[in-house]
Design a protein around this nucleic acid. Structure first.
Lengths: 362, 362
DNA sequence: TTGTACGCGTTATCAG
DNA sequence: CTGATAACGCGTACAA
């Protein structure tokens, strides 16, 4: 039965035949020590397999060297990549990431922040439902704990690493309009709890109005519906007359493509589709997805860098929004004179989009 | 300028006019207290906005209520989902997740575990390059810190939440063989550092041999090649004569489909493709991907449950491998009499797979 | 029922 | 150059 208890600096000091203060100085290079005692301490530490207890250090130094991170869900690759980005920045810094996810539940959001705070985190990286009205987030600021938001527009005194969803969505509206689309729709998942989704819709709507186009239909669906193309097909059929759909993320957009095929509609001839995020797989599709390319990992990195900077005594400054880029893909085309979704019924047998786009990509 | 320092139980005790022990007993419901003092303490705690310091508690109780989690990368949705699953199990338990990722680097793996250990984690959930030869992992066991592996076959004294990659890969070989494929390939990413990839190849190879078929070609590619269908197409063309490719994960398999299209090959008529993992998007493709469905989130959940059980004094037991399921998709077909990849050159114009499979799925 | 005092592992202080 | 000691926030044994 091997040793059950932690090896502490006391053990090292005893083994080396010196006081704990000396051992601490040697191991930390934080003060004078004779070459002799230095050797003994180092040897003792090595042979005992000593390592510092972060807990003891945290208590003494009042810095936990820990950063709390809250995201809605790691099952969403966008957030997962952002956390990975933050993790990479923090890797050599001595800071550890304490993570929580809320599953998009605003109540859990706040509980999670409270828990993170009571874990004495030195900083916070947060994406949540309603940062603007979170008492816990304000508490963090009152305790002078720097908070980096991710994915949110900058807020109050909190810095944020984000893309301008409103502007990006306007770009989609422009692309639709340039092709001649008038009857468009915005497909949203978790509209009520996602400011990203709302901002995208707002930008899309604003640009449509600015061009004198009809307001886009706001189509909210459930997670179950998003995952079941058959249901999604039913929903799309209910919204007759749409010639272009802007999905609030790429996964949804791919589901729309699938649903369209199930209804016998061709993409993009019968229905144009655009997504948001720019996930890698979108480029691998038979018909590559038109989308807004963003860099979630860069968001995580920036959030972590900003925080690190503040933690190390530097300024805690808002940086400009991260860039996005429209990716044309092949899911956008001019609407047909008479849209088959307007016609209502009788799905036509799909035609042959494969060749055209395979060549286009080649 | 709001309060800068932490509110401790001393502050509460002073405010309530009692000793710290009494305050502690009240706030923890851990001992007797008169109704009177109870009121005062609770009121004081509330008005001061007191919350316990996890650090102080950890030091005193020798339990950090923290679980360390190491995965190769959160940018891989499989691992991200697993961590999310673990997180969900831990949510109400009082344990926090301290996460690290190694970016598939075996040296960082071990550093990360050492760091986690020095953070006094109470348990460990780990996926790494070489758990079987990790000194740090053994150290954890010597300290009686329970370790749950994820994705690895059970090892030594460590429990693992995993699927039987070897058996699952045999199933792919069976499917290929049943259709009449003889010249097959295994496309691997990070073969050297992923026992999953190796086990899948081993199972695939074993079943091929058991059936008297030629050994499958082992095709290792780089991450850059995986992300660039054009390069992948070049590589596939170099391996002439293959009629079926088993990719070590779904992302790769989707890239293969893309690469095949770029070469003018039809999937599955000219080339059968199978993946591994069972990601959602595979079902949404024009030609749904044949794959092995696994449940990464369930792996994370099981790993966390097993750990929690041990942490709460229960048995620390290996559970049976998690189930997997072959999903037929539409990327598998019998090989053509003369394979176009064997023929060597002259990509033929793609034919019309869309209709056939759209109907099949409807 | 209550409060004092100690120890958890660490580092900073300060006297030797 | 060295080492004893206080302090960090907490829970608990023990004394009142």
């Amino acid at each position: 039965m091997p040793s059950k208890t932690r090896i502490t600096i006391k053990d090292v000091a005893r083994e080396a035949g010196c006081g704990v203060a000396t051992a601490s100085r040697v191991l930390n290079n934080s003060g004078p020590a004779s070459a002799d005692v230095r050797k003994r301490v180092e040897k003792a530490a090595r042979s005992l397999g000593f390592s510092f207890s972060a807990t003891g250090r945290a208590l003494q130094s009042k810095r936990s060297m820990t950063i709390g991170c809250l995201v809605p869900s790691l099952a969403n690759p966008v957030f997962a990549e952002a956390v990975q980005g933050a993790q990479e920045v923090l890797l050599g810094s001595g800071y550890q990431l304490l993570i929580s996810s809320s599953n998009y539940d605003g109540a859990i959001d706040n509980e999670a922040i409270a828990t993170l705070l009571s874990n004495d985190v030195d900083g916070l990286i947060v994406t949540m439902t309603a940062p603007e009205k979170s008492r816990e987030l304000k508490q963090a600021r009152e305790r002078n704990i720097p908070v980096s938001l991710m994915f949110h527009d900058p807020l109050d005194g909190f810095c944020s690493a984000y893309v301008d969803n409103f502007e990006a969505a306007r770009e989609i509206a422009r692309q639709f309009a340039a092709l001649g689309h008038r009857r468009t729709g915005f497909l949203a998942l978790r509209f009520a709890t996602s400011d990203r989704s709302r901002n995208r819709y707002a930008g899309f709507l604003a640009e449509c109005r600015a061009r004198g186009l009809p307001d886009p239909a706001l189509i909210e669906i459930s997670e179950a519906e998003a995952k079941t193309p058959e249901k999604l097909a039913d929903i799309l059929r209910e919204h007759s007359g749409l010639t272009a759909v802007f999905a609030s993320n790429d996964f949804l957009a791919i589901a729309v493509q699938k649903a369209a095929r199930l209804s016998g509609w061709r993409v993009p001839e019968d229905l144009s589709v655009a997504g948001f995020d720019g996930i890698e797989i979108g480029r691998m599709l038979d018909i590559p997805l038109a989308t807004i390319e963003t860099r979630p990992a860069a968001m995580g990195r920036q959030a972590a860098e900003t925080l690190l900077c503040a933690l190390q005594g530097g300024p805690f400054e808002q940086r400009p929004a991260l860039p996005f880029q429209f990716r044309a893909g092949a899911t956008l085309a001019a609407p047909r004179p008479e849209s088959p979704t307007a016609a209502g019924i009788a799905p036509q047998p799909p035609s042959v989009p494969s060749l055209k786009y395979a060549l286009k990509q080649g």
